[in-house]
Structure formats: structure tokens, C-alpha cells
Design a binder for these strands. Structure first.
Length: 392
DNA sequence: GATCCGTGGAG
DNA sequence: TCTCCAAGGAT
């Protein structure tokens, strides 16, 4: 148990807690958003929405949510889905391990619970991809259990209520906000209480453009009453993404098909297909970085001056006639990496491209591309190719 | 516990 | 353009 006094938090008397619940829930009843996942409280659909909404905006999620339930109406359907279909359903949403973890959890439920959703917090949090937040959300919304759903919204609102100065980006501080929420949560309507804090936190108490005068709980908020709203929550800035240079190889065979490779090893974009990529450590690339991208000293690497085209022919066991091209450099920013991709196209007569068993390679016509899961960098590269060809 | 894992929108 | 973010979890 967390002793709130140790953290300088003076919990309200019982009457004030009850008044707070009443005020918050009344506001929610009058102002709650009409969202597709609020039509019922069935655990499967609540689960799908909660996973999709992790670090992702509501407007982005809605079309994915609808399609996902059409494609996989039940836990069993999800458990049995082919990888390609699963990734297609998630294509563009990001954080793709969420989809893989959901399927793993669906398989757990088929094996352990006869394809049904478990009904206790302790069982739910054992499922793959479900942590304290999601377990709390599902438990409260679907099973009416008094478990807080401690996310960024809840921590932001509570930090202002009590002027809590502990960094909400620091995982070890989560327990403080959790302890406060466990006291505040309405035991009769825990699901609505949690969702009310989310609605409030995403609009009236948003991080960027809060609307303090419209806030239904402003009279409960220490930060509001003391004029310190702009000081909460405390959150340290994130690190900048690390720059990485790649060369993408857009290779066609005699039939005009393109060489694609499946990303089987990496955690990043695992399972997605892409034009072969080789990281560029050449001196030339380094010069471009210094001039165009202001590559920082800490990211400098030793030269490796074997031309990327030679490296490609060695790694992929084929002879290529390289084409002159004027494609623009493609950039893509992940949360932790920033890719600078130059495109090199070429033609080959070799049909067997690799005997390296680690690589999964395929010749694919552009008409078939839509059936392959492509992540954003690959889509940007393909877009650049098509754009360039329009001007020929 | 710090780092890794995507993407699109807002200012 | 750049920066920060948005309903976190796994390692």
C-alpha cells in the first residue's frame, strides 16, 4: 500500500470524495462521447478498443475498430486468423506487437477459458499484451469491478486535483496515481468513472489546450484554485529519435515483378514486407548526413566503403544492371528512430535471388501489393517510385 | 528501470 | 519545419 501522506498528498474527507464522484459522473452522463465501442460492454469489443487506443487517437482508431470486429467477430476467429490477415487489419495503426499479442491472448483464452473472456482482474492481467491500465479498464467497464484505469489522462487530471509533482512519465510513479484513483473511484459505477476521467482528460483537461473555465471539477482541483494548472502534470521531455541511413533496392525481374523481402527477425515492423534495405555506413552517406541532416557527433560511425550496390549483389546472390535515378530521399520518423532512405533501382535476369535461408524473398507484381502488409516506410518508398514514373 | 515499439495530427 | 503528443506493455 502507498502512504499518500509520504508523498505530500492530503486525501479529501469522505463527503468531498462522494461529491466529486457525483459531479464527475453527472458531467459524464450529459457530455459523454458517442463512440462505437460504447454501444455495449462486452469484454471482447472493449478489449479490442482499449488495445487500439493505446498511444493512439480516437479518430484514428474508429475505422480500424469497425473493420477488426467485422474480420474477427469472436475470440476464436482472432485466435485462428492467418498472420498476413492480422497484420493487414492493423496496417497503419502502428505498434504492431499489439496485434500479435492480442492473437496470443486470444489463443490463451481458447485454451484456458473455452474461448470466453476471463472475469477477474487477476486473470485478465495474465493475458498477453494486457497490463495494469487495460486490465483495469476491462475489469471496470465489462465486469463492474472497482479497478482504476491508470493512463495518461487519469494521471494528468489527478496530478492537477492534488498538485502532485511526480513525473507521470516515470513508471515507478504510477503507483501514486493508482493509490489516489483507488480511493476516488465510484464503487457503484467504476467503468463510467474511469471513462469520465478519460473523456475529461482528452478534451477539457487535454495536455495541449485545456479549457479550465469549462471544467466541471475545477472547484475540486488544487491546481485550478491555486492558479498552477500550467505546472501540472510534471513530465520530462522524450529523447530525440536516432538517425539511421538506409538504401532501398527496388529491383525488377524480366517479368517486371519487384523483389520483396519479409521482415522476419527484427522486433521493429516484424512480419511486414519491404524492398530490401541495407544500412548505409559509407563515407558518402556520412557526408550527406553532415550537410543535410546535421547528424550529431554521437551517432557517427566508422566508414565502411564497400558500395551498397556491391553489398546487395553479394547478400542477395544476383547480378543487377543498375539504373540512374533521381528519386527523392524518403524520410520516416518512428518514436525512437529517424530513417533517411535513398532509393536505388535496377534490373536483373537472375531468378533465384538468394540461397540464404534466413531471408524470405518473393517476386511480386505491383498489382498484388495490396495483399501484402506494408508499413509506412515501404509505402512512402513505393509512392516515391510511382511519383517519379509519372513524369517520365 | 530505461529503452524499445508506429503513426498522424496539432500548434 | 519541428516538437510534442495519444486510452501502454514488454523486455
Amino acid at each position: 500500500m502507498v502512504d499518500l501522506e509520504e508523498y505530500g498528498i492530503n486525501m479529501w474527507p469522505e463527503e468531498k470524495i462522494i461529491a466529486f464522484r457525483k459531479t464527475l459522473l453527472q458531467w459524464y452522463d450529459e457530455n459523454k462521447r458517442d463512440l462505437p465501442w460504447r454501444k455495449n460492454t462486452l469484454p471482447y469489443s472493449v478489449w479490442v478498443s482499449e488495445i487500439m487506443l493505446q498511444q493512439t487517437r480516437v479518430d484514428t482508431v474508429i475505422p480500424y475498430y469497425r473493420r477488426f470486429l467485422e474480420w474477427f467477430p469472436t475470440i476464436t476467429d482472432l485466435a485462428e486468423a492467418p498472420e498476413q490477415t492480422l497484420l493487414k487489419a492493423w496496417e497503419g495503426l502502428g505498434y504492431y506487437s499489439r496485434a500479435r499479442n492480442m492473437q496470443a491472448a486470444a489463443k490463451q483464452m481458447v485454451e484456458l477459458y473455452n474461448g470466453e473472456f476471463p472475469t477477474t482482474y487477476e486473470e485478465i492481467i495474465q493475458l498477453k499484451g494486457i497490463g495494469p491500465y487495460t486490465a483495469g479498464a476491462i475489469s471496470s467497464i465489462s465486469f463492474n469491478l472497482p479497478t482504476p484505469a491508470v493512463d495518461g489522462n487519469l494521471m494528468r487530471v489527478i496530478s492537477r486535483l492534488f498538485e502532485i509533482p511526480y513525473d507521470i512519465g516515470q513508471p515507478s510513479n504510477r503507483k501514486i496515481y493508482q493509490a489516489v484513483a483507488e480511493i476516488l473511484i465510484d464503487p457503484d459505477r467504476p467503468g463510467d468513472f474511469n471513462q469520465a476521467l478519460m473523456d475529461l482528460g482528452s478534451d477539457i483537461e487535454s495536455a495541449f489546450t485545456p479549457k479550465p473555465e469549462l471544467n466541471p471539477i475545477k472547484e475540486f482541483s488544487s491546481a485550478y484554485l491555486n492558479g498552477t494548472m500550467d505546472q501540472y502534470p510534471v513530465k520530462k521531455p522524450k529523447k530525440k529519435p536516432r538517425p539511421i541511413k538506409y538504401k532501398a533496392f527496388v529491383i525488377q525481374n524480366k517479368q517486371g515483378e519487384y523483389l520483396l523481402e519479409k521482415n522476419n527477425q527484427a522486433d521493429l515492423l516484424s512480419g511486414f514486407w519491404h524492398f530490401p534495405l541495407i544500412e548505409d555506413f559509407t563515407k558518402e552517406a556520412k557526408q550527406i548526413d553532415l550537410l543535410e541532416n546535421e547528424m550529431q557527433e554521437e551517432y557517427q560511425v566508422p566508414n565502411q566503403d564497400i558500395p551498397l550496390e556491391i553489398q546487395f549483389e553479394t547478400l542477395y546472390h544476383c547480378k543487377v544492371s543498375w539504373q540512374e535515378s533521381t528519386y527523392k530521399q524518403v524520410q520516416h520518423i518512428f518514436s525512437h528512430q529517424k530513417w533517411f532512405i535513398t532509393i536505388q533501382s535496377g534490373l536483373t535476369n537472375d531468378d533465384i535471388v538468394s540461397d540464404d535461408h534466413k531471408r524470405e524473398l518473393k517476386w511480386v507484381s505491383s498489382e498484388e501489393f495490396s495483399t501484402y502488409p506494408f508499413a509506412k516506410p515501404q509505402q512512402k518508398i513505393w509512392h516515391e517510385i510511382q511519383k517519379a514514373h509519372k513524369f517520365l
